[in-house]
Computed example of a mutant assay.
Amino acid sequence: MEKELKKVYEHYRKHYINDQITTRIQNKVHQEMENNNISQLKKQRPIFVKKLFYTSAFCVVVIGLFIGSAFFSPAMAEVASKIPFLSKIFEQKPINEMVRERLIENGYKISGVGYSVPGKIYHVTVEGPEDYYKQVNKEIKKITEDVIASSGYDDFKVEVGLEQKIEHKDDPRNRDGEMLFKTVSEIVPKLQKQGYKIHTYGSGYADPDAKVMRITLDIEDTEKRTDEIEQAILEGIHELGLKNEVTVNFHKFNVLKRETENKWASKVLPVIGEGMLGKKEYKTKGIGYSFKKGIMNIYITTKIDKSDSEAPELASKIEAEIHEFLQSDDLKDIVADTPYKIVVRDKEGKDIN
């Protein structure tokens, strides 16, 4: 893909970029660096930020021009066709971020954006009174559809809804839950400072009718002092005088395996999911993954039946697209030597490939 992007660079250097534009780009980068906002120039999926210099900022502009004009320029369309679809998604912002930015730029009050896998429905939630919602919901839907289409997606439906305010009743259970979490949030950092290998934690009722309150701690699998941790936490919450019983549960994990899984889950799998669900040609209705025994298993569930004559071809197409993306230069540091398996299934969950 690097060779193809060089062609794009040269094309725009020759036909579109001049000294005045270059100077403006450099000035903008310099200004952003002074404001400590350089990461905003090249946002990627969550927690994925690359170090930028003037030259890479120029490339950001080129890529933006390239994606926008590939549909209009035959020469650029030819170059674009050689870049894997998922790699193009990887280079652009997440669709959620693009929609939110466009709507905010147009002055709309938005409280949430995102898509649900069942039905492939893209939801936009409007903040404000009902009168405001009735006034802007059609405009918001049109803008959202335009942003989604410009990203190359053709299989998302858009629904715009009004934010529903939930009134929290003065329930003793809510107060107890808040008190418990506040206390745990004070105890755990102290234990962490003492060297206990605790990572994330949470507390509350398992379900609305539960009578036992539960504290869950993620700890490294090398941490053996669970009795000491449990004792310290229970002693700390004893003074709260909670009426319900409180239990402490531990979830042990391997640090290296979790780091690998987190890299895939934050940087790779969202791209695959967005791309597979957003294009009609892949006929995808669901995605999932599991990381077991050091192998990343990626599951793509399609809308077709295994007995369908086109099932093998579709499975091969999906598998090839994902494999090409995972083997790209962009993902060398992420995928590294982690073995993976791509499983394509029919609408009943039967493996096709």
Rank of each mutant, 00 (worst) to 15 (best):
L256T: 08
I47D: 13
V343N: 14
K283F: 02
V343Y: 03
I198Y: 05
L52S: 11
T338V: 15
R24D: 13
E139I: 06
S203V: 03
E130G: 09
Q164F: 01
V62P: 00
T260L: 10
I38S: 03
K252V: 05
S39L: 10
I166A: 10
K283P: 06
I215S: 08
Y340P: 10
K7A: 05
D155Q: 09
E32V: 15
E145A: 13
R225N: 15
F48N: 11
E261C: 02
V79L: 10
V184T: 03
I67H: 14
N249E: 14
E261P: 04
Q192G: 03
I104K: 12
Q20D: 14
E319R: 14
K267C: 04
L234W: 00
E319I: 08
G64W: 03
E78K: 15
V124W: 03
K252H: 05
Q26M: 04
Q327S: 08
V246P: 08
K243D: 10
D329W: 04
K138T: 13
V248Q: 04
S203K: 00
Y108D: 02
S328E: 06
K350F: 09
E230G: 07
N297P: 00
D330M: 11
R102T: 15
K252Q: 14
M1P: 07
I318T: 09
S81Q: 14
E4P: 04
T260V: 09
M179D: 01
G112Q: 11
N353L: 07
R345V: 01
M1Y: 00
V60Q: 15
R225T: 04
P129K: 11
G107L: 10
R258A: 11
S69F: 09
V188N: 00
L234Y: 07
A57Q: 10
E319Q: 12
D176R: 12
I89H: 12
E167C: 00
D19R: 08
G114F: 01
D155C: 04
D155G: 05
I17G: 11
K120W: 01
K292G: 06
E321W: 06
P118G: 02
V61Y: 12
R345L: 15
I95E: 06
D333P: 01
T302A: 03
T200W: 07
N353E: 04
K190S: 09
L234V: 06
V246L: 01
E91C: 11
K182S: 13
E97A: 12
K292T: 12
N262C: 03
A70I: 00
E32D: 02
L234M: 13
P129M: 02
Q20V: 11
F250I: 09
S290T: 11
K3M: 04
R100E: 15
D146M: 07
I166G: 00
E261A: 14
L240R: 04
T222G: 10
M296N: 09
K14A: 12
